[in-house]
Design a protein around this nucleic acid. Sequence first.
DNA 1: GAGAATCCTTGATCTGGATCAGTATCGGCT
DNA 2: AGCCGATACTGATCCAGATCAAGGATTCTC
Lengths: 246, 246
Amino acid sequence: MSPEDWTIVDRTPFFSAMGEALTRSLLRDRSPRCYDRGEEVFQQGEPADAFFVVLDGWIKLYRELPTGDHVVVAIFAAGETFAEAAMFLGGRYPVSAEAVSPARLLRIDGQRLRSAILETPQIAFNMLAAASLHLKQLVEQIEQLKVQSAPERIADFLVAQTSVRRGPVTIALPYEKALIANRLGMTPESFSRALARLRDLGVAVEREAVTVQDMARLAAFVEQSRDISEIQPAFDKRTICGTALQ
Amino acid sequence: MSPEDWTIVDRTPFFSAMGEALTRSLLRDRSPRCYDRGEEVFQQGEPADAFFVVLDGWIKLYRELPTGDHVVVAIFAAGETFAEAAMFLGGRYPVSAEAVSPARLLRIDGQRLRSAILETPQIAFNMLAAASLHLKQLVEQIEQLKVQSAPERIADFLVAQTSVRRGPVTIALPYEKALIANRLGMTPESFSRALARLRDLGVAVEREAVTVQDMARLAAFVEQSRDISEIQPAFDKRTICGTALQ
DNA sequence: GAGAATCCTTGATCTGGATCAGTATCGGCT
DNA sequence: AGCCGATACTGATCCAGATCAAGGATTCTC
């Protein structure tokens, strides 16, 4: 793995709290595997003997319905992990996974992890901390889903696509707009309209290229909506339903 | 702790996968503490040196705003745990917690857990599995929040309040309707109306007493809506946004 | 027991986003 | 070229739930 790959793994929910040294020793001699667009990672029903870290590209999790339709359950980007639950539970994958773009995945083997934990308990403790953090982030993300309007969520997404924070920039949308809409919790139609409404903030769309006149302005828009949700009880964060933590 | 208390702890996200024997040895000589209605459990900003299991009653997590308003973040019922993330992360509580009704809480001390894990690594592994499951449940719960209509969520809530599955039953609402509405992700007004709309299914409301003519009918209503969300891609489960797992 | 404060309900209106339907644009293909 | 299927945009309509506003009802307080 390249140095960049290590930093990705190091920011991952289950390894973030672990420290690079420990992570390295755990994942020594593991190497990522490449997947083509459309290639299958695992299929619904297979024994869940591993979970995965996305190093590059995009992975789609979907459930196959009796009708043959695919229902997209989630989409994962670089730096995210998936299928941990199924692996820890030791059951079978309840969904199928497939690469939406060319992708590189790191496979974390369940058996291996098991023995490593028995050998070095500290790993488990750190992973537990990381898992709690992950949960917390999940809850926050969902709060925002509930609280933010469609244009706000799109702005949020755009800001997340680049490290540029001021001045003009052109962003290439990473995959089909329908899929992005899906990920942001809206229909393709709503996505199209909401994106159009961002024109007022200096956002121009030309096919898959989105040109932002001034990132600072867009970032401010995102921040402002975040503040509202923080202050305004009407739009509050309640309702995350009895689970969770913080 | 009473035998019932043990079964509650045993069903808890972090202990469910652990088995009763291990849980007992871990929590030996711990005893629950009682809280009055309105009593504070911990306050925003205090060092997070423990997490809690709700054995009885209801606990509200809230954030205090500069304006002095309380924003309810979550409500926990018997059998749920809270503040794990803050504890594992070893920081401070980012929210305050207070009993909404008389309550009994089991306090799980961070230091103690730490040393127990170092002594018996298996505990950590089981907790990790349990945490993954918890995450999965959280995601499912949120999917349903997005997918179910207001009356469906209320029916779901009512079904969860009793073990009766057929015939007539009267359920006492566990706390203020506004708080329940909150928990179910809607305004008090919507709650009131949605509850009224359940009259067609033989649900009568008399103050805090909800009388269901036939639980089987209500349960069927909940199940049916679940099926629709399973089959109908239009109402699908997408959009849980890049985190999560399954 | 009068008055006040809470809590709950009900009605009227508004609105964001979904749905449905029609059209445009693009890339691949023979 | 010209056809075709996939992808994207746009307009029209609809609806669940939020918001605003105004009453009841119950409990608390003095």
